[in-house]
Simulated scan of single mutants.
Amino acid sequence: MIIKSNNKQYNSEYILYKTENLIKTRNNIYYTTIEISNKAKQYSNGTSIENLYLKPILRAILEMNQ
């Protein structure tokens, strides 16, 4: 599956890799999950046209890895 955002394409393997990397680098999985969900809520409240194809949860995971 290919997901498009801001002229970039992400496949599902890349997103899975980034998710696993984010969880491995953090000490507490519970707080990491809470942080991701809070960030996704912020994105869903202010959904912009430029990130229409990228779901808020995926956007949060990708941005937290940077």
Rank of each mutant, 00 (worst) to 15 (best):
K41W: 09
R26D: 09
K55N: 14
A60T: 00
K4I: 01
E20V: 06
T32A: 09
S5V: 01
N6I: 03
M1L: 12
I61E: 00
S37M: 11
T25H: 14
K24E: 14
Q9K: 06
A40R: 00
M1I: 08
L22C: 07
E50S: 14
S44Q: 09
E20Q: 12
N6M: 07
I34S: 08
Y53F: 10
N38Y: 08
T47R: 15
K4F: 07
N27Y: 13
Q42T: 06
Y17D: 10
Q42V: 03
T47W: 06
A40S: 11
Y10C: 02
A40D: 04
Y30W: 13
K55M: 11
Y43S: 02
I3A: 02
T32K: 04
Y14H: 12
T47F: 11
K55P: 09
K41T: 10
P56L: 06
L16E: 05
Y30P: 02
G46H: 14
I57E: 12
I57T: 11
L62P: 03
N11E: 06
Q66K: 14
Y53D: 14
M1D: 09
S12G: 03
N6W: 04
Y10V: 01
K24S: 12
E50V: 11
Y14G: 02
I61V: 13
K41N: 10
E35V: 01
Y17S: 05
I29D: 15
I3Y: 07
Q9L: 08
Y31R: 13
E20G: 14
I36W: 04
R26N: 15
S37E: 12
K4P: 01
K4W: 00
Y17F: 10
I36C: 00
L22N: 00
N65S: 13
E50K: 11
Q66E: 12
I57R: 08
R26Y: 06
S5F: 04
N6D: 08
N27I: 05
